Amino acid sequence: MIVSFDIGGTAIKGGIARSETDIAPLARRPTPKDDFAAFVAVLGDVIAEAGETPDCISLSIAGVVDPDSQALTCANIPCIHGRRLAADLEQKLKLPVLIANDADCFAMAEAMTGAGRGHRIVFGAILGTGVGGGLVADGRLVNAAGGFAGEWGHGPIIAPFAGTPAVAIPAYACGCGQKGCVDTVGGARGLERLHQTVNGVTLGSEEIIDLWLKGDEAAARTLDVYTDLVAPPLALAINITGATIVPVGGGLSNVPKLLAKLDVAVRARILRKFDRPLVVPSECRVEPGLIGAALLGLRYAEDISDAA
């Protein structure tokens, strides 16, 4: 049995997993952001609610574990930011602890129980407020020991011109410290930024999408530029990883016409040709972080059992 957690800046969601098909959520609790002892106590309370000692606990979290130092970067929860969180929790809770980025857990959930079932290599893409991703190969999360594999949202790769006729695209500053990252144009905030650049009008992403779906020419121009910018780096990620399916999560994944448009553009730019959709909506719409963390924990327990 595994106890899994989806750790957010507002709430901690827990669950009990006995198999891939038996994952039950527990009550959610507020996240103690500034008190590590209180943070540990909440995890302990959830574990106690499970009623038995788990083989391990597994956490999905909006942060990244450094693969060398094992220190966690998690700016929105100060009490765990910079800690070697797995080691600290193992000392306090006396249980093995696994930690993975929430986008990695999303990719794991999709690979094992969602749109990626039956595929050897699954690239999970997030098009939410910003851009993220995770990579699963042969049922294994590539970032199981921490790291940045699958983070296609960062790196100075955005084209300086896009659309037909071409419009100049500034090298927008990114929160990672670089300029011209996919993250600056690919998520909801990026779509808004592009609409302002292309049309000189400030609108929210939902307004832009709604206008586009109603046939608005200015919004259509923005979406053409958007696709022209986002499809090439995603196609490159697919070429490099060999992924045969790309489940997409995040707010923009809820727009079927947008994913279909992106899918066509991506498939036109990759080396391997597919006669089926490649960029598809995610299927794990409820608690993918919790499910992905549970699957990581279950795989860990299987490995320990096989080694015994």
Rank of each mutant, 00 (worst) to 15 (best):
D55E: 13
N101D: 01
R83T: 15
G186M: 00
V225K: 09
V248P: 03
A27F: 04
A24F: 12
A173P: 04
G153N: 04
P170T: 04
E49V: 06
V142E: 09
K273E: 15
G147T: 11
I80Q: 06
G118S: 14
R276I: 06
N76Q: 15
P96K: 13
P170N: 01
F106E: 03
D68E: 07
T53D: 13
L213A: 15
A188F: 05
P156H: 14
L59S: 01
G153E: 05
R28H: 06
R84F: 07
L203M: 14
T244W: 08
P233C: 03
N199M: 12
A38D: 10
E206R: 09
L298P: 00
G180L: 05
G44K: 00
A145N: 09
S253F: 07
D45V: 05
L234Y: 08
V182E: 15
Q70F: 14
I47Y: 10
T21I: 14
P233D: 07
I245C: 03
V279R: 11
T53N: 02
G8F: 03
D275K: 08
L213R: 07
L72G: 01
D183R: 00
A218H: 14
A100W: 12
L89I: 12
D228F: 08
L252T: 08
G116K: 02
P25A: 11
R193W: 02
L223T: 08
M108L: 10
L213V: 12
